[in-house]
Design a protein around this nucleic acid. Sequence first.
DNA 1: CACATTATTGCGTGACACGCAAATATGTAT
DNA 2: ATACATATTTGCGTGTCACGCAATAATGTG
Lengths: 189, 189
Amino acid sequence: MEDGGLRARKKLATREALSRAALRLALERGLENVRVEDIAAAAGVSPRTYNNYFSSREEAICALRSERADRIAAALRARPAGEPLRDAVITAMREYVGDQEPDKAAIQMMLSAPSLRGEFYKGVVALEAPLAEAIADRIGADPACDLRPRVLAAAVSGAVRVATHFWLRPGSTEPFSVLLGAALDELLT
Amino acid sequence: MEDGGLRARKKLATREALSRAALRLALERGLENVRVEDIAAAAGVSPRTYNNYFSSREEAICALRSERADRIAAALRARPAGEPLRDAVITAMREYVGDQEPDKAAIQMMLSAPSLRGEFYKGVVALEAPLAEAIADRIGADPACDLRPRVLAAAVSGAVRVATHFWLRPGSTEPFSVLLGAALDELLT
DNA sequence: CACATTATTGCGTGACACGCAAATATGTAT
DNA sequence: ATACATATTTGCGTGTCACGCAATAATGTG
């Protein structure tokens, strides 16, 4: 029952293979033209197995994005203790994102297809819990009683959403990191 | 083709009847035990008509909550022009919510059922656009270029989410308006 | 190597979303 | 009021899907 056992790793691998296949196929053919059967085949498992991992195409397509939360929290914990809270949070976010450009077509699709938007937002909101916990640790707050960590985390995740929105505007060429930095700066004023 | 015509009003009425029926049935019987057929019957239309209005049970159940956005924006526009931006936004939110308690069981359900959460978040995020526009008008910003209105609106909607989260905690008895006020105050500090 | 645990698979079932075309209701101009 | 145009509702058929269940295969353990 260990986490690093062959079993657990294989499960993660199939989950990832399924999700990658789902996203790739949706981008290639359009969301409407992807059968569950195709996703399963592309990942080398039976359709029934696909449904053991995900209970909807939407969930499969958005699953990978939903798993970056812990690294963000870790980036915050790595900030020096003396740094003011908001600066630390914002710098941690900037560091985490770095200057990697996300896949524009993928995010575009997730935000324009109504059936994917909800799943996408679930992923964004999921970033907040670990981030809020790291914030609570830093300011010595009880995350169960104090609103501040969660409100700040929610504001940060909101800034990410807004930056994404502007980054996707037709004709926009600015790198995501620049827009994210600008959005996060608005939280300081 | 008018907005106030009999046609348009009847359409809105059926839409609302369907959504109310869907929510009521889901609360009474649990989400799993609600057939599309039941919702349509409770609203007095055919199942096929139900599907002309909504393309999933989840959409029908969460539809009513998604339509409060314009009134929030109006509340902001009613604030005196001299008031500092954030105070105006926060006061407007407080005024809008007043001391009405939302339906705890309903929101509880929407946040605990994975298939509803995405739709619920879509509704919360939908609050941001009109609010951001009202903010942009107030500070004379171009909502297409300036990040500030949207970041602030997103922070407010995040605060609403966080307040909701705490309001739902088992054992919590504080009114929603108090928690919302506390969450919004964190945005000022 | 034997045994317990866990994952995968096939099959069957109930439900659902939606295209299409007919029927019905509504708005409008004469 | 009547006739006509437009929008909405409805029934039916179709392809798809999620999931319970039980059998099978794969993996970890003593």
